[in-house]
């Protein structure tokens, strides 16, 4: 056994002395530690931001509104859901977890503790950010096509896209059996039938509405329609304002059908 041990010792020391085997530079280990630390910090911050943007999306787009239509609006809710944001969030959280596992100290405690801590941090951080205007600023950068916003475009764009089973926008014309609605993308005519479930309040120009129904030959046939409260769907409202500017009542409509740009309450009576 001593002979073998000497043999191993001699072989290894020969390789060290000859330079065949060398110490890896301490800066490599330092860079590795810094790299993992930086990657982890960046991943966590992105996850917090992602969660915040998801909350913002749910609050400011038309997604949650479709649930108020009950089972009829459920498919449109699924259609308008922020899948990309949620998938990105999940991937970031998994990456952060993987980086925690790579660290030297994470094995000391069961990984579950770190997982719970990570998720709590992301959720609490995302909620705290809702009290700031970070999400609104990102929305502004994105839809005003600034370079900084380009990264977020794929995530937020879905909030303004056309839905097969739903529509949301500002009424610009009230007809006998139709409404013309300004959406963040275009002007759309939506058809009201005798079966359409309408709200009890009058439908006035300038009011924001959300509807479910279906598209038939590119025309939206409304099944159910609701008025939107002024504080709801800010992303949609801003989208309409960007596309069409401030609300301008049509000159040929009677006063009773006009809504002043700053108010959602009718002047008198109703038009529809």
């Amino acid at each position: 056994m001593n002979e073998t041990q000497n043999k191993i010792e001699n072989e290894v020391m020969n390789k060290i002395s000859s330079g065949k085997v060398q110490l890896r530079s301490k800066y490599i280990f330092l860079a590795e530690k810094l790299g993992i630390g930086s990657a982890f910090t960046l991943t966590i911050l992105l996850a917090v931001l992602c969660f915040n943007l998801a909350l913002f999306y749910l609050r400011a787009s038309d997604n949650m509104a479709y649930l108020s239509f009950g089972s009829q609006g459920f498919l449109t809710f699924l259609e308008s859901f922020p899948y990309l944001l949620v998938v990105a969030l999940i991937i970031l959280v998994f990456c952060a977890g993987w980086l925690i596992k790579k660290s030297d100290l994470s094995y000391k405690k069961p990984f579950g503790y770190f997982a719970v801590g990570l998720i709590c941090f992301v959720v609490i951080g995302g909620i705290i950010l809702t009290y700031t205007t970070v999400a609104e600023k990102i929305e502004q950068e994105t839809f005003e096509s600034h370079i900084g916003g380009l990264f977020f475009k794929p995530f937020l764009m879905h909030g303004l896209e056309a839905r097969r089973g739903g529509i949301v926008g500002r009424i610009t014309e009230v007809g006998g059996d139709y409404l013309v609605v300004q959406t963040p993308r275009a002007l759309e005519k939506i058809i009201l039938t005798s079966d359409t479930d309408l709200p009890s309040q009058p439908l006035l120009e300038g009011a924001f509405v959300v509807a479910i129904g279906k598209r038939v030959d590119n025309i939206f046939m409304v099944t159910k329609l609701q008025l939107i409260n002024p504080e709801e769907m800010q992303m949609i409202r801003r989208g309409v304002h960007r596309r069409f500017g401030k609300f301008q009542p049509r000159a040929d409509m009677p006063n009773s059908c006009r809504l002043s740009p700053s108010s959602s309450k009718p002047n008198n009576g109703g038009c529809f």
């Binding site: 060290i16 085997v21 110490l23």
Partner: peptide, 11 residues
């Protein structure tokens, strides 16, 4: 093992 340990001593 000994070679790897030596190489990574700074780690």
């Amino acid at each position: 093992v000994f070679i790897k340990a030596y190489k990574n001593l700074y780690g």
